[in-house]
Design a protein around this nucleic acid. Structure first.
Lengths: 341, 341
DNA sequence: TTGAAAGCGCTAACAA
DNA sequence: TTGTTAGCGCTTTCAA
């Protein structure tokens, strides 16, 4: 664009215009406690700032203070899902609240991009970096990350060591199952994923826990592993119906979407013939299925938030270095016909 | 976290360790052309850099060079949709390619947040800012934005003046309609949105254009305005079927999703009984509906990319200050049963 | 209540 | 081929 950069107005310009020294300007700009500035000088400075349209130079400020107010956030999938977006939003809101700004880098899982992103952050002397993934999993730590404070968000590292903020899969699975139990269901199917992951283990554990809690015996025939998407859900329904399931807990909302299709195709209805609850609370899907899907939310926003809190030392991870964030149930209309189950 | 910041290693430390001056170090670090450094000194510097784990300080560098390598991106909805995510990704990739880094701020449409975000960017002396919205519309320019170079992404301002990068709604509408025309359809419904917007006008214009092009008379009864979501699509189907429509172009993918539901409920099938094409190419929906939805893609990634290109002066907007980005058709299986229409 | 001056980590003349 | 030096815009003692 236009390159006639008219040299930004600096503190010196303001000082000159106000007829004071730069240190005086500095004091009023930062509203310094210690130094008491005369009302008169103060006003002249303010006026000069207005008139010249002065903006402090954050880089110069950070340079002298020896630390920046940046927090790096490297994400593996800003694009593919709305999930990363929520993490970013949570992180940003919280960072902002504490006077920090987010430097985000999307790596799409690409190692080179990751290394470059981290180098960039290190060179900007970030306060620390949040390393996040769009689905909960174990990660290999990129080198370079050891050079600064780092907290893992929605993932965790092999050796432990690094603080990690993750969703509570177990409690989430329990919540989902309880929603069905509460409506009187006893034959509750669980379409789990075929992908080994904390979600696979945790949600199953939660499912079993809720069943046990309600005195319902666990029946392995009611648990079926399927591809974690529409196809998987669609195909699992036959089996579950043959097992006399009256309700089903789906590994995620997309699976639930497939279940809806299969149910409809059989001339049956949700929730009358089969009650269903999902997982993730993926807005575009869950809220707009017919009927709207009851589900359990993956707390991405809160994950991002918690990430910066522990990075900034505002929250302490418990022993084990894990901060576990709850997955709240979201009641809509796929479990019971009476408005929000 | 740990606060025993061991004072970062600086260029001076490296110089000392290598037994040379800082300027020598500067030269090798930046691989300066002009200055010829002795092989010996060069190696000693490299070694010192390795051993000390030196990282240049980007802030100091930018400070002396008088300009940062930041590009600001303010978005109104990182969260609600995957759309903003794509814009960010496109912008970031392109910025990165030219040695710039993105400073992103999510404002959720909140004015105060917007002002604060822009102030922050200005203080970081960004090279310029990209102001983007998640759906194509006219915007009021926040004050402050005039203090720096700015390009609008997926939106445009009242007065003109600012360069804007927007999707080609008209060509997109034409593409969508052509997909149906190509399969021999002549009675083609169009479920448009009730919301006044460039999308509403543009897509209709494209629809009419394609019809004219194919010699099919325009029938107002085939165009119906509906709420741009599942509900709207669901409810519009009855009318369209009564008009003997054999194909329908939906204002967006969510509307198409509602159309699917209504069609299924009548015991009919897509595409045999009603061919449908959407708009947006919202991955979670379009790719996973049954059958997968043929649609026209909103080029968010390219919008972000183009945004930084014009900001950096790499691309020149045509007269009128608009850069119009094409919306490519995405062929799946909702228009024709023979694999990808 | 205000100002002078040193210095944050780096680049870029200019000297040597 | 390498070093010296003067800033970049700001904060912060320390003096006045």
């Amino acid at each position: 664009m236009d390159d006639n950069t008219p040299r930004a107005v600096t503190m010196r310009d303001v000082a000159q215009a106000a007829g004071v020294s730069v240190s005086t300007v500095s004091h009023v700009v930062n509203n310094k406690q210690g130094a008491r500035i005369g009302k008169d000088a103060w006003e002249r400075v303010q006026r000069a700032i207005q008139e010249l349209g002065y903006r402090p130079n954050a880089m110069a400020k950070d340079l002298v203070k020896g630390r920046s107010r940046f927090i790096g956030l490297v994400a593996d999938a800003i694009a593919s899902t709305p999930f990363a977006g929520q993490i970013i939003r949570g992180a940003q809101d919280e960072a902002w609240r504490h006077g920090h700004v987010l430097l985000v880098a999307n790596t799409e899982g690409n190692d080179a991009a990751e290394t470059e992103a981290i180098a960039m952050m290190l060179e900007h002397k970030v306060r620390g970096v949040l390393y996040s993934t769009w689905y909960h999993r174990q990660v290999e730590l990129p080198v370079g990350l050891t050079e600064t404070d780092c907290v893992l968000v929605n993932c965790f590292a092999a050796g432990g060591g690094l603080p990690a903020v993750v969703p509570d899969e177990v409690a989430g699975g329990r919540q989902a199952t309880r929603m069905l139990l509460a409506e009187g269901h006893r034959r509750i199917g669980f379409i789990n994923t075929t992908t080994p992951s904390p979600a696979q283990d945790g949600r199953l554990e939660g499912y079993r826990g809720a069943l046990a809690e309600a005195g319902v015996p666990f029946d392995p025939d009611l648990v079926i592993d399927a591809q974690p998407d529409q196809e998987g859900g669609y195909e699992a329904v036959g089996h579950l119906l043959a097992q006399d399931a009256t309700g089903v807990f789906c590994h995620n909302d997309r699976v639930a979407m497939g279940v809806y299709d299969a149910v409809r195709e059989r001339g049956l209805r949700v929730p009358e013939d089969l009650a269903v609850v999902g997982f993730d609370n993926q807005e575009v899907i869950a809220a707009h299925l017919r009927p709207p899907l009851s589900t359990v939310a993956l707390p991405h926003y809160e994950l991002g938030q918690a990430g910066v809190r522990v990075l900034l030392g505002l929250d302490q991870p418990a022993d084990g270095g894990r901060v576990v964030v709850p997955c709240p149930p979201v009641h809509r209309s796929s479990v019971s016909t009476v408005a929000p189950d």
